[in-house]
Structures are given as C-alpha cells and as structure tokens.
C-alpha cells in the first residue's frame, strides 16, 4: 500500500487563549477508503476539518495529506493544495445562489488548474465534466442553466456533490450532507456518492452524528474516541 491519503500524528490544536480542543495521537485514511466519522457537536469536528483543509495550522504534531506536510506550507500554498486535492460537501450545500448550476459545479476548476486539467483529460472539457457528473448524479440536463437558488433541496445536494467531485480530487470531505434529507433520499444519495467516489477513486471522509449511516461505510470511527481532548475528564 502506498502512503495513506491522510496521516495525522500527535496532533494538537487550541484556539488562542483556550484549552486544547484537539488532541489526536494517531489517525489515517487510506486511498479509496470510505470512512464514517461520528462527530457530535463539541467534539472538535469543525476545527478538524479546518485543519485538514489547511485553513488552520496545527499547534503541534503533523498533518500529512498525500504525503505533504500541511504545516510546512505557506497559507497560499495550503489554499492551493486544498482546492487541488479536496472536494467539500457541506451541510447547507453552500451553492452560490446567484450562479447557474453549471457555474457552481465548475467553480473549483476556476480556482484549481490541476482539477481543471484533470476534468479536461477525462471528459474533454470542464463544461463536459460538469454535465457528465450532474447526469451521473441524476440531475436533469434541463436544470444546468438554472440558478442554483431555484433548485429543490435534493437537487441542490446533488449539485454540491458534483462540485466536490469535479476534477477528481483525491479526498472528498462531506460534513453532515444528508441531514436535510429524509431516510430514503439519504440512502439514494449516499449510493450515488459512493459510486462517484469509486469512479473517481477518491477517498470519502464523511462526518455526521447520525450513527445509522455508519454501516454503509468501509470503516467507522468516533471523533470522541479519536480526540483525547474531547473525552470527559475522569473524576
């Protein structure tokens, strides 16, 4: 097996003037793996995602993404690295409501030359890549030029997924992406997401507090167990 996709070791992080929020001795995610990370609020979930995205720098320890030490990069280089290798799906999907569906999906390729290049290699053009992904995710081609704000919740979710997957980033981070959906839709969406991740050979880091989904993933972990700082103090 080659180097893991994510490698955390002896990671510590605290916001200025506050006690340590994250203390993770060891964590890794292999390539192509789908991981369910159970993260209730207060477990340091948002901060961990910020660290993985390179928005924050760890206080101590190491974060390696694809073997690259994130802490050693400059802020601009971390920004580059994030968009080149990571796709995000957020709880509120976070589409730009005033852009068309197509423009929303294409956005990461506008900021990452690498992802634009990959999209072109695989599909011929960024536009084609966006259309193909949306088609795979079951979105009607007629919706492509609609404004994102006009779509239903389920449709927005698929657009958000397509946006995360375009240009084949090695890692897809999904933060509670299904909490707005009912159980059936959730299952259907996850199936699509798994299929697309597999096709793009991306790893999926899925963060949610909904334990019922854990069984669908290759591996499941709880951030409360992982993060020593979040465990209740022994009396």
């Amino acid at each position: 097996m080659s180097t893991p996709l994510i490698e955390l070791s002896d990671l510590g992080f605290a916001w200025p003037g506050q006690p340590e929020l994250l203390d993770i001795p060891e964590f890794h995610l292999r390539r192509g793996e789908t991981l369910f990370l159970k993260g209730p609020s207060g477990s340091g979930k948002t901060t961990l995602l910020g660290l993985l995205g390179g928005v924050q720098k760890p206080g101590r320890g190491h974060i390696r993404l694809l073997g690259t030490e994130l802490g050693a990069l400059s802020a601009a280089a971390r920004d580059h690295f994030r968009v080149d290798h990571t796709g995000y799906i957020f709880q509120q999907f976070n589409l730009l409501p005033f852009l068309s569906v197509r423009a929303n999906v294409e956005l990461p390729c506008r900021f990452s030359r690498l992802r634009a290049e990959r999209a072109r290699q695989r599909h011929g053009s960024v536009e084609r890549a966006a259309a193909r992904l949306l088609e795979h995710l079951g979105l009607d081609a007629a919706l492509l030029e609609r404004r994102a704000a006009e779509l239903s919740i389920g449709q927005q979710q698929r657009v958000a997924a397509a946006r995360a997957l375009i240009g084949q980033p090695e890692l897809v981070i999904a933060d509670e992406p299904t909490s707005a959906l009912d159980a059936d839709a959730r299952q259907a969406f996850l199936d699509l997401l798994f299929a697309e991740c597999r096709e793009a050979s991306a790893s999926l880091l899925f963060v949610s507090h909904d334990q019922s989904l854990a069984g669908l993933f290759g591996r499941s972990l709880s951030l409360l167990e992982l993060n020593r700082a979040a465990r209740p103090r022994e009396i």
Partner: peptide, 15 residues
C-alpha cells in the same frame, strides 16, 4: 457566507 463558500472552493483571500 458567499466569501466562505468561495474560500472552501479554493479562492485565496486575495481573490
């Protein structure tokens, strides 16, 4: 929100 979305999609602060 718009800014944060753009940031998550790879926009640098100078963008």
């Amino acid at each position: 929100r718009e800014m944060a979305i753009l940031r998550s999609l790879g926009a640098r602060p100078w963008h």
